[in-house]
Each structure stands twice: as C-alpha cells, then as structure tokens.
C-alpha cells in the first residue's frame, strides 16, 4: 500500500515536471514576436504604440499553450494525488 502511494506521488511529480517542458514553445515564440516587434519599431519609430499593443496581444495568445501545461502541472501536484489515492483505497477496500 505504501509502495503504491509512493509510486502515485512520484509519478504525479514526474508528470508535472514533464508537462512543463511545454514552456519551451511559448518561450521561443514570444522571443520571436518581441524580436520582430523591436525590428518594426526600429524601422518605424512612430508606430511604436500600435506595434506594442499588437505584440502584447500576440504574446498573450502565444502564451496559452504554456499556461495549459502550467494548469495541468498544478492539477497534477495539488489535486491529482488525492484523487488517485482515493481511487486506490476504494479499490483496495473492495
């Protein structure tokens, strides 16, 4: 029983860590977006306001995939272990 609970906790932590690998994608994407925005502002300094607003909107949307991963990681750390242990104890009780 202890071993099973240990495996559940360990795998939940591992899963959370693996889920956060998704953070690479938004990092690269947002970096690209900001780099292009800097270029655009360098070329046309008068359009700074519009470019900045659009860039922030784009960054927010590009961030979404990373935030999905974050939410899954948080669920795996704080919610999932309890649920899984409950399922296990129910199964063992039968």
């Amino acid at each position: 029983m202890e071993l099973a609970i240990g495996i559940i906790l360990g795998c939940c932590a591992l899963g959370a860590g693996i889920a956060m690998i998704a953070g690479i994608g938004p990092g690269i994407g947002e970096g690209n977006a900001v780099a292009k925005a800097c270029e655009a502002i360098g070329r046309q300094p008068e359009s700074k306001g519009a470019v900045t607003t659009t860039m922030i909107m784009g960054c927010a949307i590009a961030e979404t995939t990373g935030l999905y991963a974050l939410v899954i990681a948080i669920l795996l750390i704080f919610v999932a272990p309890q649920q899984f242990v409950n399922v296990l104890t129910k199964a063992m009780g039968k």
Binding site: A60, E63, T64, L67, Y68, L70, V71, I74
Partner: peptide, 16 residues
C-alpha cells in the same frame, strides 16, 4: 476555456 486558463494561470503562477 483558453480565456479562463490564461487569466487564471497568469495570476496564480505569480502567486506561486
């Protein structure tokens, strides 16, 4: 779903 996750994830990750 994405609107809710985005807002919640950003604020909560700051707190964490």
């Amino acid at each position: 779903v994405s609107m809710a996750f985005r807002h919640y994830g950003n604020v909560m990750s700051g707190g964490v």
